[in-house]
Write a protein that binds this DNA or RNA. Structure first.
Lengths: 152, 152
DNA sequence: TACTTTTGTATCGCAAACGATATAAATAAC
DNA sequence: GTTATTTATATCGTTTGCGATACAAAAGTA
C-alpha cells in the first residue's frame, strides 16, 4: 500500500469531508425556511447585488450556468426571486429578489453566528481563521487559473 | 448588507469551492480509467483494507450507506469489485476488489503527485500543508462530534 | 418460544454538479 | 445584408449526497 494513496494524506478528501459536514451544519437552519445551502449562496450574492444576470451569479459562485439555472428556477417557483429578460441584451436573464427573498436576510440573521460557533475549535479560532482563509483562497485561485489556461 | 453575509467572510463557501475545484482537477486523470472521485475514494479505502462490509467503507468516508451502496453497485458493474454476503452476519455485504480493482492502483500511481503539484502555491507548500491538515481535521472532528451528541 | 428492538443494507425521491449539446440573440466578417 | 461566430442560457443524462423509509437478519426480552 503506497503512502500517497492513504486517506490520511489526502487534501481533497479533507476538503470534501469538511465541506460536506459544514454544509450539513447549515441544513437544519436553512431547511427551516425551505432553503438549501446552494440556494443560500445565491441569496448572499443577490443580497450583495440585486438584479444580476445568471452568468454573473454563476461566475461569482464559480459554478456552471447549467447548475445555476435549475437552482434559480426552483427559487423562482418558491417566490424568492424573479427571472426576467434583460432589456439591453435579450439573451440575458436578469435575476431579481422578491420581498420574500430580501426579507430572508432578516430571518436568517443568526445563521452565520450559529454555524461559526459550531466550527470554533483548538486550531481554528478568530485569530487563526485568516490563515485558513488565505490558504484556501490560494488553492482556489491556483486551481481556477490552471483550469482556464487561455487567459494569460 | 450585513458583513457576515458576504461571500468573502464565509468559510463554508471556501471549503465548498476548493473541494469542487480540486475534485475537478482529479477528473481528467480518473475519467481516463472510467472512475469518478468518490469511486477513487472507495478504491483508496479498499486498497488499504480489502474485503470490508459496506458500513465500514461508509464510516471511513464519513458518508451514509445510502450514498455508498449505489456507488458500490456501479463499481461492481464495472468489474472493479465484488459484493457478497458475509458468512458470520448474513446482513452484511462484504466488498472485495477484483484483479482489475487492485491493478488500478498501478494505473493511477501518478495521480497523487500530479494533483499535488496542481495545488502547490504561495501559502500552501509541503512545509505548511500539515498546518492546513490540522485545521481541517479539527473542523471535521468538531462537526462530526457535534452531529452525534449521544456519543459521550 | 414469541415479541420487540436494534442493526446492516437497500429503495425512493429530490437537489445539486457537471459534461455534452441545443437554441436564440448578438456580434463580426464578408 | 447575409453568413459565420460568439455569447447567454437552457436541456439532457449520469453520478453524487442525503433524508425518509423499508426490510430482513440478529440480538435482546418476556
Amino acid at each position: 500500500m503506497k503512502e500517497q494513496f492513504k486517506l490520511e494524506n489526502q487534501l481533497c478528501f479533507r476538503l470534501y469531508t469538511a465541506s460536506r459536514l459544514l454544509t450539513q451544519a447549515y441544513h437544519p437552519l436553512l431547511s427551516e425556511h425551505g432553503l438549501t445551502y446552494p440556494q443560500y449562496l445565491v441569496l448572499m450574492v443577490l443580497w450583495e447585488n440585486d438584479a444580476q444576470p445568471v452568468n454573473d451569479i454563476a461566475k461569482r459562485l464559480m459554478l456552471e450556468t447549467n447548475t445555476v439555472t435549475p437552482l434559480l428556477k426552483r427559487m423562482e417557483s418558491q417566490g424568492i426571486l424573479m427571472r426576467g429578460k434583460g432589456s439591453q441584451d435579450a439573451r440575458q436573464v436578469i435575476v431579481t429578489l422578491t420581498d420574500k427573498g430580501r426579507n430572508l436576510q432578516n430571518l436568517l440573521a443568526d445563521v452565520p453566528m450559529k454555524v461559526g460557533s459550531a466550527v470554533i475549535c483548538k486550531s481554528v479560532t478568530p485569530e487563526t481563521v485568516p490563515v485558513l482563509f488565505g490558504m484556501l483562497d490560494d488553492i482556489i485561485e491556483k486551481l481556477d487559473s490552471s483550469a482556464k489556461p487561455d487567459e494569460a
